[in-house]
Amino acid sequence: MILDHGAPIYEDLFGISWLDFNLSNVMMIIVTSAIVFIIAVIGSRKLQRKPSGFQNFMEWIVDFVRGMVSSTMDWRTGKQFLPLGLTLLFYIFIGNLLGIMFMVVYDGDLWWKSPTADPSITLTLAVMVVALTHYYGVKIKGGKGYVKDFFTPVPLLFPLKIIEEFANTLTLGMRLYGNIFAGEVLLTLLIGLMASGTLGFVGGIVPTLAWQGFKLFIAAIQAFIFVMLTMVYMSHKVSDDH
């Protein structure tokens, strides 16, 4: 059956027992990064004061992320997070899109998919983001201010604040993973239906197209939510009014 495909796991690199790789993920990470890099570099080639074509689009994206940043924190503090937000937005959006167009199963293993449809990757991004919020929290407010934030407004909330950090990390990563993975599962099922016969093809083509369109929407929304929440968590750590 179509859902029986596994993953190309490569276990125990250098004989280290916990160092396992999903080669599909590794490939998709590199493909996504390459595409993002190429788009960004093409978009910022031949920059002009009077923008045209692709530069307009890139500037629109920059303005969009800038809007996100300045809606959550002071722009003077938030300016340094603009490249992070832009890169996250592009990386997650492109990653989400890659699984919509097609999926490639080779030799029983699923090779081409969204990199964001794997919890290892989304959680890595989430942990990285939360770690960065802590880093910038200490850097901008100082160690004392950073620690003090855990005990305000009342010290009683300290345990909750600790839990909140883990909950934030987990929800940030799992939300993205869940949305994209569920989308891919449903897409796989629909394509399986279409492949099952003439009747299945006729019945399945409209839902498949509709679901692909909806996944496009989800891809954009999830990328936006991820970046937005990144900025919100960041502002909790670096802003004074919280």
Binding site: F21, N22, N25, V26, P115, S120
Partner: peptide, 11 residues
């Protein structure tokens, strides 16, 4: 597949 540390490091 669970959490693959190799993937995480690569990512």
């Amino acid at each position: 597949n669970g959490l693959l540390f190799g993937d995480m490091i690569i990512q």
